[in-house]
Simulated assay, not measured.
Amino acid sequence: MMAADDSQRPGWTFLTNHAHVFIALARDPERRLREVAVEVGITERSTQSIVADLEAAGYLRRLRVGRRNRYEVHPDLPLRHPAERDHSVGELLGVFTTRHTGAP
């Protein structure tokens, strides 16, 4: 059995990039997408596309605060896959962060 360490990046993960971006913004709603992209390990453009997907589906709302964006998470919506639709995204966020909403 191989030991996992930082030098070995997995070929796959249990969470999608959409989940990683969503969790990062739930943890810090004022975070810049450039920072989220670095954390997730994807391009800033991919991060912007994911945020647009999350917004279009109603899971995330972008609020303009001065020259910055703030992201509001909507935790009561169901997970998208039919096998998990009876669970909310808030339940998923609860596993990874204690902050479930983007509310101030």
Rank of each mutant, 00 (worst) to 15 (best):
M1W: 09
M2Q: 07
M2L: 14
A3H: 03
A3K: 14
A3T: 07
A3R: 15
A3S: 02
D5N: 11
D6P: 00
Q8E: 10
Q8D: 06
R9Y: 14
R9E: 03
P10D: 12
G11F: 08
G11R: 12
G11M: 14
W12I: 09
T13M: 08
L15V: 03
N17M: 14
H18M: 12
H18P: 01
H18F: 08
H20A: 08
V21M: 10
V21E: 07
V21H: 05
F22K: 06
F22Y: 15
I23Y: 02
I23V: 11
A24V: 01
L25T: 01
A26W: 01
R27I: 00
R27D: 02
D28T: 00
P29M: 09
E30T: 00
E30L: 00
R31G: 03
R32H: 10
L33I: 07
R34A: 13
E35K: 01
E35W: 08
E35F: 13
E35Q: 03
E35G: 07
E35S: 03
V36E: 03
V36C: 06
V36R: 01
A37W: 06
A37C: 00
V40A: 11
G41K: 10
G41H: 07
G41R: 08
T43L: 15
T43R: 13
R45E: 13
S46P: 12
S46V: 15
T47N: 10
Q48V: 07
Q48Y: 06
Q48R: 14
S49I: 15
I50M: 04
V51I: 12
D53W: 15
L54F: 02
L54T: 03
A57P: 05
A57R: 14
A57D: 09
G58W: 04
R61S: 14
R62P: 00
L63I: 02
L63Q: 06
R64V: 04
R64W: 08
V65F: 00
V65H: 04
G66R: 08
R67L: 09
R67W: 08
R67K: 12
R68G: 05
R70I: 00
Y71S: 00
Y71A: 02
Y71W: 09
E72G: 02
V73E: 05
P75R: 06
P75V: 02
D76G: 11
L77I: 10
L77N: 06
P78T: 13
L79H: 01
R80E: 13
R80W: 10
R80T: 14
R80C: 05
H81Y: 02
A83I: 12
E84K: 09
R85G: 05
D86F: 01
H87P: 11
H87K: 12
S88H: 03
S88Y: 04
S88C: 11
V89N: 04
V89R: 00
V89D: 02
E91N: 03
G94A: 06
G94H: 15
G94I: 04
V95S: 01
T97C: 12
T98K: 06
H100Q: 15
T101H: 01
G102M: 00
P104M: 10
P104W: 09
